[in-house]
Each structure stands twice: as structure tokens, then as C-alpha cells.
């Protein structure tokens, strides 16, 4: 449904971009995925690169990202999105390629592909949604689950002695020479969404310069997995996730 351009003499100043399909998203109420999908596709729309963009969807809640993003897309096996994106970008070197993955996909089963993709400096954008939990399979412990965090597979709370420590993979990747732009953002407030969108814009621009991998971690909520309302989840995220996963650029190109 497309809303009119003008209502009561007022002009439209914000609407869903045409780079998103009309399909209603299946995500739970308040889920960060929808916001990240939206700003990603807004950037594609505003840059006018829909015909030059190919995305890769992961396995996880965002497995159906291609139902919503109105660009050519491939669905990768669990953990392999960055390898698939590598294959695409290598044979289509003038295309904008992004891989979209969650924490289990990117930082557990796909760690090898993640590290080596960034180490090769593949000219792609990797979007990493970190909500510290496996959402789709029902709230199991993720590599990024915080210590003490209760999940369906850490019902008494994550213990370092048993499960190791929450993985700050973004800091780890920033050490690699192939990483060109590495940043950690969130989308839980208007200001945060705007900053995250700027990071996405910059990352797409950098792709044309072919100077290495752009990596954006989005510290995201999971209201259903965390068993909270969306607003409670966003508050919890600020209080608990941000101290361990601080927001901001970790490696930014010199301007």
C-alpha cells in the first residue's frame, strides 16, 4: 500500500523505500532486524544502486531477508555468507555486495569464513547483528551471550569456565590489515539509527574504492529471546550489552 504524496497540504517526508518489498516482515514486534533491513535498503535506494547490489542472507531469523529486500539476493548455508559474498564479488567486481549475518552465523559456525574474508580484504560490506542469542532456534546461547546471561542452553547463566567468554569478534577483526572500516553501532534510538545508517552509507561508498572489508556490528535486541517488551529490551541492551560491546568506530579510514 502506497500512501499519498500530500495530505492536507503536507508533503510526505518519510516513507518506506521502494527497495523494500510490500511483504510484511515476520520478525517479532520491536526486533532490530527490521530497522537494519530498512536503513540498508534506504541507502541502496538513495545511492541509486539497486541494479548494482547483490545481498547475501544468512541462516537465523533473517534467513528470509530476501523476502523483504528488493535486490538480487542469495541465501547462504549457515555461517557461509561471507564466502558466498566473496564468490559473488570476485566474479562481479563492480557490484555492491553485502552479507547480512547474526552472531551464531558469523561468530560461531562461520568464524573461519568471517576471519578469512576480512583478512583477504574482500570489498564487501558485512553486517553483523549481535543480539547475544540464537533467535530463530528458540533462544539458545550465542558466542556473544554475556556472562551470566540466561538462555535456553545456559539456563543457569553463561559460565566462563564452561562456555568461555563472550566473543568480541569485531575487535578481533579490526586487527586484520584487510579490514578497512570496522564499527559497532546500534539501532535502538532515533539517533542511533541515523548513525548506523551513516556507517552503512560510508561502507557502500568505500566499496567502490576497493580498499578492503567494511564491517558493521549492530548491537541488537531480541525482545522474544530475552523475554522482555521491546522497550525493556532496548533499555537492557544499553545497560548490559553496551558496557561489553561499546558503540563507536573501532577502525576508521583516515579522512
Amino acid at each position: 500500500m502506497k500512501e499519498p504524496d500530500v495530505i492536507e497540504g503536507m508533503e510526505v517526508v518519510y516513507r518506506k523505500p521502494q527497495t523494500l518489498t510490500a511483504t510484511p516482515m515476520h520478525y517479532c514486534p520491536g526486533c532490530s532486524h527490521g530497522v537494519v533491513h530498512k536503513i540498508l535498503m534506504e541507502v541502496v535506494d538513495e545511492m541509486g544502486i539497486q541494479d548494482k547490489t547483490v545481498g547475501v542472507a544468512p541462516v537465523g531469523c533473517s534467513v528470509f531477508a530476501y523476502d523483504y529486500m528488493n535486490v538480487d539476493m542469495q541465501e547462504a548455508a549457515h555461517g557461509r555468507a561471507s564466502a558466498v559474498a566473496t564468490g559473488i564479488r570476485r566474479v562481479l567486481p563492480d557490484t555492491y555486495v553485502f552479507a547480512y549475518q547474526g552472531d551464531g552465523d558469523l561468530a560461531a559456525i562461520g568464524t573461519g569464513e568471517t576471519v578469512h574474508t576480512v583478512n583477504r580484504g574482500e570489498n564487501i560490506l558485512m553486517v553483523f547483528i549481535n543480539n547475544g542469542i540464537y533467535g530463530m532456534t528458540g533462544g539458545q546461547m550465542a558466542p556473544t551471550s554475556l556472562l551470566g546471561m540466561k538462555t535456553s542452553t545456559s539456563p543457569y547463566g553463561r559460565e566462563a569456565a564452561v562456555n568461555g567468554y563472550p566473543l568480541r569478534i569485531t575487535e578481533l577483526l579490526a586487527q586484520l590489515p584487510g579490514a578497512y572500516y570496522v564499527t559497532r553501532q546500534s539501532v535502538h534510538t532515533t539517533a542511533a539509527v541515523r548513525k548506523c545508517k551513516k556507517a552503512i552509507e560510508a561502507s557502500f561508498r568505500y566499496q567502490t574504492e576497493k580498499r578492503g572489508t567494511c564491517f558493521i556490528e549492530v548491537v541488537a535486541n531480541c525482545p522474544s529471546g530475552w523475554k522482555m517488551t521491546p522497550n525493556e529490551a532496548n533499555d537492557w541492551l544499553e545497560k548490559n550489552m553496551f558496557p561489553y560491546y561499546p558503540i563507536g568506530d573501532i577502525k576508521a579510514p583516515k579522512q
Binding site: 500530500v6 517526508v13 518519510y14 516513507r15 523494500l20 520478525y27 520491536g30 526486533c31
Partner: peptide, 16 residues
Amino acid sequence: CAIVCPDCAITVYRQA
């Protein structure tokens, strides 16, 4: 409101 909306459900209008 529209910026934080995860479902792109809000279209916004403003007096020009």
C-alpha cells in the same frame, strides 16, 4: 517514530 519503526509502518508528512 518512523526511523525507529522496524516494520516501516509509518509514513510521515510535514507542512512544507
